[in-house]
Structure formats: structure tokens, C-alpha cells
Amino acid sequence: MEYSDKVMEHFMNPRNVGEISDANGIGEVGNPKCGDMMKIYLKIEDNIIKDVKFKTFGCGAAIASSSMATELIKGKTVEEAWNLTNKAVAEALDGLPAVKMHCSILAEEAIHKAINDYRIKNGLEPWEDKFSKGDHDHHEHHE
């Protein structure tokens, strides 16, 4: 299994690592038992992702996916961030090995969770996605 140069570059120099002390949307997904867990912090102002940080426990692809996903939603509207797909994350990384695609799904899921956390905190209805419908076991893809 080989990673693209882009994956290795993001893995070696991950963007947006850390926490946001006054984050108004936080999403944590994954399970340490499965070997990967991702936590996304959002600072949303005027419907814009002003700042985003992440913490990830996982393989090289999980860390690179977190880094790339946070880069892709920074400065975007909440709607644009919501519409970021795992495929777009993987493509931006010049592809992921098939067994590692679930890492990009984890990133999409973490962003959704953080956005819904923000919506709930602001008295808004959480948005529905494929994960909230119960299709959230990212490990199904390589079982």
C-alpha cells in the first residue's frame, strides 16, 4: 500500500492541528477500538467557518484526511462545509488506497457532527445526513 505524495505531505505537515477554546461546534467520531478517532472544532461566525482545528488518533490517511478536510472548509459557509464529500477530500489528496477510504468518510462525518452541534446549540434543527440515518459504520467498507 502506498500513499500519494499529497497524503504524505499533509501527514508530515498537518494543517489546523489543535483545539479551539471557544469553539461553537464540536464533532467527535470514530472509535479508538477500531484504530481511528477524529475530533473537529469549529468557530462559526455569520454563517462562515472562521476557524477550524482537529485532533486525530489514527493512521497516516486519517491524519492527512483531517488536515485536508479542515483546509477545504476553512472560510466557507456552513452550507458549503456541509456539502464537502469524502470523495472530494480523497480527490484533493490525489487519492487514497481503497482500504483507507473510510478515513475520508470519517472526516466528512466529523464535520457534519460539528456543524449539527453548532445548529443544536443555536436552537436550530440538526440537518439529516447518511450518517444520522444509521449508515455511520465507516468500517463496513472494508469488512
Partner: peptide, 22 residues
């Protein structure tokens, strides 16, 4: 997690292995 550990060790020229699923 072990795989990310191996990747970083590799960047420093160190060859090792892990029992991680990843």
C-alpha cells in the same frame, strides 16, 4: 496508532513494524 508511528519513523530512516490493523 502504529501505522502513523511507522510512517514517521520511516521519514527518519528507521525500519520497524506494528501490530496495528491500519
Amino acid at each position: 496508532e502504529g501505522e502513523s508511528l511507522l510512517l514517521l519513523l520511516d521519514q527518519f530512516g528507521i525500519c520497524a513494524s506494528t501490530g496495528s490493523a491500519c
